[in-house]
Computed example of a mutant assay.
Amino acid sequence: MWVKEFALDAGEVREEDAFDVAALHAWLAGRVEGLDGPPEVRQFRGGVSNLTYLLRYDGLNLVMRRPPRGHKAASAHDMRREFTVQRRLRPHFGAVPEMLAFCEDPAVLGGEFYVMEHLEGTVLRRELPAGMTLGEDEARALGHTVVDTLADLHAVDPEAAGFGELGRGPGYVRRQVEGWSRRYRGALTDDVPDGEAVMAWLAEHQPADTALRLIHNDWKLDNLILDVDGPLRVVGVLDWEMATVGDPLMELGSAMAYWITADDDELFALLRRQPTHLPGMPTREQVVERYLSRTGLPMGRWDFYEVFGLFRLAVITQQIWFRYRAGQTTNPAFAPFGDAVRILIARASDLAGIRPAG
């Protein structure tokens, strides 16, 4: 059954992620009315890229997003892009928070950041929160909601929503294969596979673009805020830092890299970050079938999109492992990321029918 009595998913601010709260309040009070502060600040757990904080004012909760310190990939951590995407998308896709203020002045907190409304709801992570259970029918409904909301996003007309300049036109699949390959090589450490066999396979087997749609580019359950008080629905989608106009099947493949089910092998199961293992949850094949039915998009060879999704996740994980190895972050959650990269490269290699080198 659904239970809604959950604590806010935020805890103490990690020392390495602390900032000048008084400076933030002084800047924000001139842009949002009625703030009696400074606020109590909590840090949302989860998330491995941009940092997210809860700002607790008297009678009002807000959320602040900022980049981490240390090594940053060239295209990641773009606060202005993330802010602008959500502000433009909100009239066309309801599951987006209201954007309140954007700061580009590094004198305030040392870099760009933005503040938005706080949406009430539940964010699911690896295990269900205490006091929450899902029967098979409810787990199936949750899986369907996740894929249906993705299909709804991909139905937004990029031009009508003001995203005409966001994409770079045809050649999205090629650019993604080249870009993620370049990022992996740039973050390579001596304790993970070199990935060259997987990268060569992706380059050789890449299909033409299927379509160009607005995509979130990091679609997973811990980026979705769920209303579980009544009919299940997604009330908010978070973490738009990588949103763009691109091939929606590339996004579907990337989302399936996180969709680990009860019958997956033990090593892959170690990487599960969302409760997709529950009885009743749709399989990856069922998710793909439902998505294609709702969107009407054609599917060529699914193995390419699935291998790409695994490799892309390996790159994201390796970029964080690179920062951890270099001492640029001490978050203990990152300690097993080198092992995760090895598991993902091995699985991508197996699905592609190749042997990884290195």
Rank of each mutant, 00 (worst) to 15 (best):
G353Y: 06
V307I: 07
I320S: 04
G338C: 11
F304S: 15
R342V: 14
R272W: 02
F322Y: 13
E289R: 14
R284W: 03
L278A: 05
F322A: 05
G338W: 02
L292G: 09
F308Q: 11
S349C: 12
Q319E: 08
V288K: 05
A340T: 08
P279I: 00
R342A: 15
P336Y: 00
Q318N: 12
R325D: 04
V341K: 14
Q286F: 11
L292H: 10
T283A: 07
D339P: 00
V315F: 03
M299F: 03
L278S: 09
A352V: 10
R273G: 14
L297S: 05
G296N: 10
E285T: 10
A340R: 05
P279E: 01
T329A: 01
F311G: 03
A348C: 09
Q286D: 13
R323Y: 06
V315I: 02
D350P: 08
R325P: 06
A326G: 06
Y324L: 05
P279G: 02
S293A: 15
G309A: 09
P332I: 01
A348R: 12
W302A: 13
V288P: 06
R347Q: 11
S293K: 10
S349H: 12
G300F: 01
S293N: 14
D339M: 07
I320E: 12
P279V: 00
I343V: 14
Y305S: 15
R294S: 07
L344N: 08
H277T: 00
V287F: 04
T276C: 02
R301N: 14
V287K: 00
P275H: 00
D339N: 09
R323D: 11
D350A: 15
Y291K: 07
L344E: 10
